[in-house]
Amino acid sequence: MAKSLFEEKLNSGKFIVTAEVGPQKGVDCSEMIHHIKLLKDKVDALNVTDHQSSVMRFPSLGGCLLVKELGGEPILQVTCRDRNRLALEADLLLAYSRGICNVLCLTGDSVDVGDHKEAKPVFDLDSVQLLRMIRTLESGKDMGGNDLKGAPQFCIGASVHPAADRIEPQLVKFEKKVAAGAQFFQTQGIYELDSLRRFMQYASQFDVKILAGIIVMASARMAQYMNENVPGVIVPQSVIDELASAEKGKGLQKGIEIAVRTIKAIKEQNLCHGVHIMAVGRESVVPEIIEAAGL
């Protein structure tokens, strides 16, 4: 029996589409609710980010509860930056109890890139250890070796960076994540297909699903800024140039165009198992992309 609806879809062989919503800073959830409503039926699952870029926001768990309440399939993003193992375990128990059964396990961005630079970085666990910890919970034990009264079951995933400038150490870690039980991977942003193709040639030996990360750029300036300031983002110069070639005020349109083109190519060439669309604050354009890409 599948652990979640999403897991069922993963195993169905269809081309998977996921997207993400970023919670707001504050308690007014109306925009996020709007985005969830907009996307929940157009995607196979919806990620909710966990203080992305170490900027404090409404929590991922809260966002996932909303997704669930609104009838969507949530993927809980969990980072190791802010909680030690006790807190992580407890949050996961809560998530499961509320029907949130998909978890994306991440190390988390450095505190230094966010808006609480003086906070204590926790990193009690890393992403590999987090994956293993979830499998431990599923076995009915916590990390202290104590019995659980009722064990959760999760469909778990992790991230991978096929376009990293030093790919070999990333692959070492990828294999560790696979060994730890990761079922699916949502990759860092993909802009050109060569690196993805090479990565898939290698990754196809493992029984995991790879969803190519698609970041929607709104302008060349944004691309450049992300290149310099957002961990894990490497936008090739050709893409920046293409964005810059757009008419004034049409940057986002160009970004959408690029995203659609990339997704289409991935799907046509059957490069990987699906895509994960990250609109970074412009969630409203995602339906347009999905439609244009023929998903």
Partner: peptide, 19 residues
């Protein structure tokens, strides 16, 4: 910067730390 034990995070770029 994160003191992690199982390999690099995805934030490394040009051999440098994201932080």
């Amino acid at each position: 910067t994160k003191g992690i034990l199982n390999g690099p995070c995805a934030g490394t770029k040009n051999g440098k730390c994201e932080a």
